[in-house]
Structure formats: C-alpha cells, structure tokens
Amino acid sequence: MSAPAVMLKGCVHAYRYTLRGVIGANCRFYPSCSDYALEALSAHGAARGSLMSAKRILRCNPWHPGGYDPVPPPTPPKG
C-alpha cells in the first residue's frame, strides 16, 4: 500500500475514534461508509480509493435505498 493510502486510512481511523462518537453512526449501507473507505483505499489505492469513497458518501443519503454495497474488486491489470 502506498504512503498516501496509509495516511488516508489513518485519517479514517481517526475519524472513527473521534468525530463518529460525537455525530453518531448514520450509514445506510453495509459495509458502512468508513469500512468501505478503508477497504477501497487498501484495494484500489489512494486516488481511486478516495474517489470511490467520496461517491459512496454521496450515495449515502435518504433518497438512496441503501443496503448491501461492497467494494468492487480491483480489475486485474491488462496484459
């Protein structure tokens, strides 16, 4: 895993242990947005992982049905 990805994962963990306690957990999905972000960062790296997490958070609103939404597996490199 790249250094930025590790740092971003650190941020997600920090969020889970601090801010989440204040604002409460409100995710409509399984796995939750923060779990999703951790997994996406591990599997897809910092850039793609961040983008996927951001999209997931945008999906996570009252007008989306929510439910089971796992991180898509990385496509194997071509060739």
Binding site: N26, C27, R28, Y30, I57, C60, P62, G67
Partner: peptide, 21 residues
C-alpha cells in the same frame, strides 16, 4: 444477508445516511 432481510421486512433503512450528517 440476514440483516438486509431484517431491514426489508421492517421496511426501514436504519439510517438517513452519512451525507446529510
């Protein structure tokens, strides 16, 4: 899958989502 089934039968998604918060 059981959890999802539970949500379905209760007709509730347990949360409003991360975005509004």
């Amino acid at each position: 899958s059981e959890m999802m089934a539970l949500y379905r039968t209760e007709k509730v998604n347990p949360a409003s989502g991360c975005l509004p918060i």
